[in-house]
């Protein structure tokens, strides 16, 4: 099967803007001991093949290059070296409700958010009641968004995001702020998607979620690909073999 995403020796470095670089060069020249040109690699020589329908967790410490990798695949960053081929529609979800506006109402934001991610207004209208009900925000349609807590916003955004249509979903800790109930509902949605043909790459620190949803895992460290393969074996290397498997404790225990 041809990969839906192919990365060949991809590196990404950030070295500042040419003009800022010019300012630095002038400063260095004038002071004789300026900071000069510094650039750092966010990612180094990444090779990766993602197949259609893959569910992949992207793990690694903060600053390991997870967001950079997702943005490169999304086409928001250009690789410094290497080549990226993506054969399908891609959607990147970062943060809670990207593009939503505090001063607008929940209903207005729902339309704005949906349209930003390629939904037709008619489809949003059609799904509106179901989305609000799923998010448990039926009574908040005309409230200003700023009056909602971050958990409520996450519910609202995720509730609509369930209806986004694309080939590849790139999620960057997108809805990680909800409470226990939300997490259960959220995981239920993913559980249903587990055997679907959509491709998911999800940057997460929630290793239990990675185990539950993702058959494969990418581990990045300081911009390098440490491992890519079957989730359990990658997690064993990431946290060590003694990392405890999740224990479910019922309320009456």
């Amino acid at each position: 099967m041809d990969p839906i995403i192919h990365l060949n020796d991809v590196s990404k470095s950030f070295d500042g803007l040419r003009l800022r670089r010019m300012v630095r060069i002038v400063r260095r020249y004038l002071s004789g001991n300026g900071s000069g040109l510094e650039h750092y690699f966010a990612l180094r020589q990444i090779n990766l093949d993602v197949l259609r329908g893959d569910k992949i967790a992207l793990i690694g410490n903060n600053g390991s290059g997870k967001t950079s990798l997702l943005k490169l695949i999304a086409g928001l960053y250009r690789p410094t070296d290497g080549r990226i081929d993506v054969s399908g529609r891609v959607l990147l979800l970062r943060g809670v409700g990207t593009g939503m506006v505090d001063e607008l109402t929940v209903a207005e934001n729902l339309f704005l958010y949906g349209v930003i991610y390629g939904m037709e207004r008619s489809k949003i209208r059609e799904k509106f009641d179901e989305v609000m009900e799923w998010a448990e925000l039926k009574d908040f349609a005309s409230a200003e968004l700023r009056t909602l807590s971050s958990g409520m916003r996450a519910r609202m955004a995720f509730s609509l995001a369930r209806h986004f249509d694309t080939d590849v979903f790139l999620l960057d800790e997108a809805f990680a702020v909800g409470d226990k109930d939300f997490k259960e509902k959220y995981e239920e949605v993913f559980r249903k998607q587990k055997n679907g043909d959509k491709t998911y790459i999800i940057a997460t620190h929630d290793l239990d979620f990675a185990r539950m949803f993702c058959a494969k895992t990418i581990w990045l460290q300081k911009g390098r690909l440490m491992a890519f393969g079957e989730t359990e074996s990658v997690l064993n290397r990431y946290v060590g073999p003694n990392y405890p498997a999740p224990i479910r404790v019922s309320a009456n225990q």
Partner: peptide, 11 residues
Amino acid sequence: AMKSLTADAIF
């Protein structure tokens, strides 16, 4: 002003 859209959304 719409930084999140400029930096994170694809359009």
